[in-house]
Design a protein around this nucleic acid. Structure first.
Length: 350
DNA sequence: AAAGCGGGGAG
DNA sequence: CTCCCAGCTTT
């Protein structure tokens, strides 16, 4: 039997009941696909529900303030996705009269939509025969066909896309694409794949050659960089503080945080007082410093470990641009800040 | 071609 | 601890 037939048979009997599988509306499919980029379904699911409730149509999303969108995205990570999501919503709503492009080529032009996402939307919404290649597809194909070309090499990306496109059921690309991904997620898993009950265990080259654990091949892991964050949590008359919005190309672009002093190592109060950035932050204020956490919080990102200390800067003099402490939770903040706030803010403020 | 971008779950 | 997740963009 051809691969696509076995795959779709497996899919029909094993697929999960997911909300975006009840619709072919481009807005909902697009929203789910952006959210699920590099994100597990279990993690993205609650966000999907939140977004379709807050923004039932692309027009609602387009009209929303950027900070509201980021706030709703808070905790999901890769925040450029949220910024691109909003940009694309505005483009579709205001430039395309709310109608999404109806082809792979057209979809590919949208911000935040790459080869995978354009293929997913085009196949699911418009039955266009374009194969998706996500992490699941790489794994399933690498194993069944015993391919050891690195999946994140230029050659690998080309090779796997070509193979997936050949295998694709051109008559029902929507089902095939979702089937191969679901199969990778539930059956041909990274660890402990269920080879014993696999519909392909008669032909899988990786199983035959005992290479399940080697495939797929992925090029080198990046090394983690250590950074040292000192947040200045201003406490003005026990009612106000300062937040700043992150800008630029680094982590958490667009999110808010307390004034940050970054150092090259863990520092004490005396070191902090000597730093120019710190002196500039407090200007001529009369302050009293207290360290909130002696043991730094180690916030782990994919490529960085952030050793973080929160310094409470008490003062009775007001500062320009200060905001009410209660208002802090209205701003989109990194999980690192959110966790701190849950420890720091009295219950009355939450 | 390589680097950068989050947070969380599984083993 | 390591690996990886319905990847994309920038350099």
């Amino acid at each position: 039997m051809v691969l696509s037939k076995r795959l779709t048979y497996w899919y029909l009997h094993n697929k999960r009941d997911l909300p975006w599988r009840k619709t072919h509306e481009p807005y909902h499919i697009w929203l789910s696909e952006i959210m699920l980029q590099q994100t597990r379904i279990e993690q993205g699911l609650p966000y999907y529900y939140k977004f379709i409730e807050a923004y039932p149509s692309v027009f609602d999303l387009a009209k929303a303030p950027a900070d509201d969108v980021l706030k709703l995205w808070q905790g999901l990570g890769y925040y450029s996705r949220a910024r691109n999501l909003h940009e694309t919503a505005k483009f579709v709503a205001f430039e395309l009269n709310g109608v999404f492009p109806d082809s792979f080529k057209g979809l590919l032009k949208l911000k935040g939509v790459g080869d995978y996402t354009a293929s997913a939307i085009a196949s699911i919404c418009y039955d266009e025969p374009v194969a998706v290649v996500d992490g699941n597809v790489y794994r399933v194909l690498a194993r069944i066909f015993g391919i050891d070309t690195p999946i994140n090499s230029t050659a690998g990306i080309k090779e796997f896309k070509k193979l997936a496109q050949e295998l694709l059921d051109k008559k029902d690309p929507a089902t095939f694409n979702q089937a191969i991904m679901e199969f990778g997620a539930l059956h041909c898993k990274p660890q402990n794949p269920k080879c014993g009950t696999c519909p392909f265990n008669d032909k899988c080259l990786a199983l035959k050659n005992d290479r399940i654990k080697e495939l797929p091949v992925k090029l080198k892991k990046t090394k983690v960089k250590k950074r040292f964050f000192n947040y200045l949590v201003f406490n003005i008359d026990d009612e106000k503080t300062i937040l700043e919005q992150r800008t630029g190309k680094g982590i958490w672009n667009g999110l808010y945080q307390f004034p940050l002093i970054e150092s090259n190592a863990l520092i004490d109060e005396a070191d902090l007082m000597k730093m120019e950035d710190f002196q500039a932050s407090i200007s001529n204020l009369k302050i009293e410093l207290s360290l909130f956490n002696e043991d730094p919080v180690i916030h782990k990102l994919s490529h960085q470990h952030l050793f973080t200390r929160f310094w409470v800067v008490n003062s009775n003099e007001d500062i320009e641009n200060s905001i009410q402490l209660q208002r802090v939770q209205d701003y989109p903040v990194p999980v690192l800040i959110e966790n701190f706030l849950n420890d720091y803010l009295p219950d009355a403020y939450k």
